[in-house]
Design a protein around this nucleic acid. Structure first.
Ligand SMILES: [Mn+2]
Ligand SMILES: [Mn+2]
Ligand SMILES: [Zn+2]
Ligand SMILES: [Zn+2]
Lengths: 137, 137
DNA sequence: TTATTACTTTAGAATAGTTATAATCTAAGC
DNA sequence: GCTTAGATTATAACTATTCTAAAGTAATAA
């Protein structure tokens, strides 16, 4: 609960009004020790489970977009069915378990630096991400 | 046109009947010297432009799925807006130009081999793909 | 405190990519 | 040619996401 003051400050500093919906979503996304991956549907379920007053799906989308824009979340491209988001915004990579439809972190230090011997004139690199698809053996 | 006999054979060998729609789509996808990347919408436009009798959108989806299943196409995860497909089914990587919404190949030989120092018990690696997002500088 | 205003939430409509349905058509084999 | 399994098609359905516009709320000026 004292954490909430931090979230209020975080939101204010970002130019986002600290509404009770946003604070609740902050608690869920940033209140735990571990970072995690989620879809909008996942987040929606967690919100429903941890809250009495419900938060509309529109607000969940709005908030995730706002947090993305502020750099508090990262969007991960896995497939074209739905978007995945990551509360870990550091540079890192992922396993994607196709059996469980689940992302697993690969820390930057767990991958030899990716060296790309090709340049595109007039373009700068924005991100380099490795996706390792795995399945049961 | 003599190419078409190859496509007919290719389809027959795959257990796919060589319909005129599939042959046409083969010509478009595999008839050129260069491989390329496309969305269903892209393919749909190319078909419309190169054909008199139109091919229904359902058939385009069906055919792309059939070719994916046979390993003649590869699906590339870029974002969750739509699926991208690649006529280059070899192991390789991609730039994604966010300004043009366009994929560009990075050959396997243009990237130092990606070494991952992490394993997931009970899982085997199915693919390793690097996506390098670039933008105008 | 109250009033004003800009921002936020919300239900529901709209949109877009994709998949399912079921009627019609056609390639393959007899 | 006849039969049949597989293919095509228009269209409906589905799902993730975005849009709309009305009602609610936080910030702040009076
Ligand atoms: Mn992650
Ligand atoms: Mn490619
Ligand atoms: Zn690490
Ligand atoms: Zn090469």
């Amino acid at each position: 609960m004292s954490n909430n003051l931090n979230f209020v400050a975080k939101l204010r500093n970002s130019g986002l009004r600290p509404t009770k919906q946003r604070i609740k979503i902050c608690e869920i996304l940033f209140g735990g020790k571990e970072t995690f991956h989620f879809s909008i549907n996942d987040l929606s379920k967690i919100v429903a489970q941890k809250t009495n007053e419900k938060i509309s799906l529109a607000t969940i989308y709005n908030t995730v977009h706002a947090f993305l824009g502020k750099g508090y979340l990262k969007q991960i491209a896995v497939n074209s069915e739905q978007s995945y988001y990551d509360t870990n915004v550091s540079d890192h990579h992922h396993f994607y378990d196709e059996d469980k439809s689940q992302l697993i972190d690969i820390h930057d230090c767990e991958v030899e630096p990716v060296k790309i011997n090709k340049k595109i004139p007039g373009k700068k690199i924005k991100s380099i991400e490795v996706l390792v698809k795995v399945q049961n053996n």
